[in-house]
Design a protein around this nucleic acid. Structure first.
Lengths: 154, 154
DNA sequence: CTCCCTGCAAACCTTTTGCATGTGA
DNA sequence: TCACATGCAAAAGGTTTGCAGGGAG
């Protein structure tokens, strides 16, 4: 996990540099995205921001998230649950392990991906700029709940 | 590419075995999915089927695709273009290389993924049942169009 | 002859857009 | 001050659902 305060500072600097305004609503969204490792949805961010700004609109959350995504300060993931999720703490592509039951999302480190990207590029002639690697399955918790005899071996 | 006729036979058998009816509309969808390597969208399948069955509805295409997906005879991919795409010719997860410009989708073979899945499983305790690996970038064609001086090197 | 499937339309849900009002720098 | 951001509401766009009528087995 990147230091959330550092990420927040980086995001604010980026906005300032490009002459975007730091409004209270934006700041609230930035804070949430910089701190969260849980890959929040728009709806979740909205609910959080509403605690401090009861009149904030979903549109503002969408616009802010889209802005940050465009600036590369946030990455968007597609998790097959019909809604977009964001990661502002590690704003670069990285593998996820997603529980199909409880929707928990884990980050996963893997060094071999860089090699693979070069291989893809060489074989296809594509200029690869982004990627997405997600694993789907049951987390240990949900495995137990579905089949109590599951020993979690293998 | 798997033999399309073989895939079609396999799909039909699966439906028959489970007592699902083989209607003309379903057969048309099956044929398209068994033959296509282009990862068609629902809309595209719909247009194709409409050639032979002008009154077919989008709902039927959706229902058939959902059915086949549930039976594991088709895989659904998420390609960030806001619509679902299907692969009935290779109905198991495999990497894709996707052009962000023209939306062309290439299949990509990679043997190292099995190893990685076992590693993920061992490290996280998850029981991995599915995965998704997609690379995004510009295809050689679109690179040229955007920057004619692009030599396509590396 | 029976259910299952189809087709139509309406409902759904998330995301996007237009525009008048408000506000950070 | 004033260009840009907000918030509301409406629109958009893909997908799902309910149901009456039709057709596969």
């Amino acid at each position: 996990m990147t230091d959330p305060e550092l990420r927040l500072t980086q995001m604010i600097s980026k906005l300032r540099t490009l002459d975007f305004r730091i409004t209270p609503q934006r700041l609230a969204v930035l804070k949430i995205l910089a701190h969260s490792t849980g890959h929040p949805t728009i709806e979740w961010i909205y609910e959080e921001v509403r605690r401090d700004f009861p009149t904030v609109s979903l549109a503002t959350i969408y616009k802010t998230a889209t802005l940050l995504k465009g600036l590369g300060e946030v990455v968007e993931l597609e998790t097959r649950d019909g809604r977009h999720r964001f990661d502002g703490n590690k704003p670069y592509p990285h593998p996820h392990v997603i529980c199909t039951q409880c929707k928990q999302i884990l980050d996963f480190e893997d060094a071999s991906l860089e090699t693979l990207i070069r291989e893809v590029s060489a074989k296809t002639g594509y200029e690869i700029s982004d990627h997405q690697l997600d694993f789907f399955g049951l987390c240990p918790q949900c495995r137990k709940e579905i089949d109590p005899s599951d020993t979690l071996e293998q």
